[in-house]
Design a protein around this nucleic acid. Sequence first.
DNA 1: TTGAAAGCGATACCAT
DNA 2: ATGGTATCGCTTTCAA
Lengths: 361, 361
Amino acid sequence: MSNSRLTVREIARLAGVSVATVSRVSNGTGQVSEETRRRVLRAIEEHGYRPDHLGRALAARRHGAVGLVFPGLSGPYFSELIQGFESEAVKAKTSVHILCTHLRADSDAEVIEMAHRVDGLAVLGGTVSHDTIEELATMRPIVVLAGDGPAGVPAVRVDNAAATAALTRHLLVDHGLRRLEFVGDPNGSPDVTERWAGFRQAHRDLELPLPRAPIRVGLQQPDGVFAADQVLRRAIRPQGVVCANDETALGVLIGASGRGLRVPEDLVITGFDDIPMAALVTPPLTTVRQPVRELASQTARLLLQVAAGSADHTSLLHPTELVIRGSCGCPTSTAPTPTGRRRTPQIAPQRHEPSGAGDHP
Amino acid sequence: MSNSRLTVREIARLAGVSVATVSRVSNGTGQVSEETRRRVLRAIEEHGYRPDHLGRALAARRHGAVGLVFPGLSGPYFSELIQGFESEAVKAKTSVHILCTHLRADSDAEVIEMAHRVDGLAVLGGTVSHDTIEELATMRPIVVLAGDGPAGVPAVRVDNAAATAALTRHLLVDHGLRRLEFVGDPNGSPDVTERWAGFRQAHRDLELPLPRAPIRVGLQQPDGVFAADQVLRRAIRPQGVVCANDETALGVLIGASGRGLRVPEDLVITGFDDIPMAALVTPPLTTVRQPVRELASQTARLLLQVAAGSADHTSLLHPTELVIRGSCGCPTSTAPTPTGRRRTPQIAPQRHEPSGAGDHP
DNA sequence: TTGAAAGCGATACCAT
DNA sequence: ATGGTATCGCTTTCAA
């Protein structure tokens, strides 16, 4: 009930001690006699005292908060990301500020503004310029998530290029496909940039003609449908499309099926991420699994460590896993199970471990 | 470059004025001679001074931040919500703290903890107990989004029950369907509770036997696929399913189609929300459009107003719109367009305006 | 072990 | 129009 006018001073008075002692008790710092501690604790309990965060933050010179900067798009990917990050922060009694840069005019300025209010910042790759990240890095601990920052700024990521190359190679070699196209905008985010690079690299490695320009669309399901329309309109249709992520792949699948195309017979489709739906569509989606949630919580932990000073400024490279299902043309042994996540891929997944994980100048 | 050791005092010294004057200038409050203001401004610019938020907040007794509490699920709905809320907060130079309660043990305590750090709180319906909301309301301005709080706590919402009833009636009357089932967990959130209520009410109004128990699943696409499996396993299949939201409806559609069922011939499906994908699937989804983003930004505005004292503690009831497409059995005039959002529904949408919008004790 | 007092960085009242 | 100063709520030396 009562709450407002409660300060250290007040509690100190009620417990018959000094504010310093109250502070010691409520923080568990310093030496306090058992008897005094009990008295103070009782006063605190009795009146429901909670130390004010502003006063505490001002005196302790830390905000007790970290920021998360992300574009602000829809879908399972970002939700996983946010939850993974947030859950880790909460464990550390740190609150999370968010900033969506998507469709915002001067987001860089806002990010800097935010940096003033937090102890550290996690920035999704591609949301702000490198220059800004560099500036941010001079004022606060920064970690780049799913992308790369300037040298010296730690990043948490997966090897998108290698994974996409492996996936593309599967299509090119194991299925003997030619005429593949890439769906996604390489300028949209570092993830897509790298996946596009891996897609091309696979062609190069096999000394095949380089693929044509990507079908530049966004990362959500509707974008995939849009991409499917574009593909279907072509004079010569590709045999397969490698999509920047699962959501667009699902969109392509839905768009293609809706227009009478059979997958994978008429068109092969692959995704990236391995979101839950990937295993549940018909045919189930061949894709690359990346531990999004783990990436995000890892990022939070790293950021918190750096902010606490106990930092190994190391970048982290997480492993991915090729998940072969039916949409690439591989046989699907059985109908997809409703709980696709738990199930093991039909074909033994090909572990793709990055070479020098964890090293970074 | 330089930044850390810069305080009001320092700027005051550099500009040869008092801290009070610096404060006046940097806040635009009080009277300052043009000449002095210029001098102070120059010092500020020159050294890149930015008033510290903690000091400011402590002195001004406000945090400059609001909190958003939501379950933390995936999908277009929550993304829209977050972005709508955040964009409005940013406009007001207020930062947004987030808290995902989903799958968290003692989230109520964390929400209260958060309340101490912000000027106001927007709570999604169903994320915390009514008791807790009541407690929160005694300490901070609270707005409930998509749900209802205790009396006296403003809420921003749509009339889910009426909208779902209208939709159900369309199925029951215009299509002459019987044996409808509801997909969604009424205990999951107030939204679903109300939609379930509307679904039943429509039956009651027509003096039809009440529908059987709902198929209790979550609100995401995979849950819809799961629901489809359940439905298909039944001895007597329903003629149609009214889904709690579009995402599950899409899941049901995908699951049903994948198992060879034709929609709407064999099974009619409807959703709720009108997310972009709703117009893009085959057949396009009959659903109810609700202005999610607008609801969220409305909530932010309301919260900010209340926090600023300039409050009409009124609850807001937004209108919804029945969107008839093909999945209910109505004829689809043409193939769905790739940019479904912009397109007008095939059948003139039936405006469903709530009766007493905006009134609340 | 405990307390007095000096900040932390900014605001705002009260004189001037 | 400007400056001095108390204050916001808490932490943290420094003495006692």
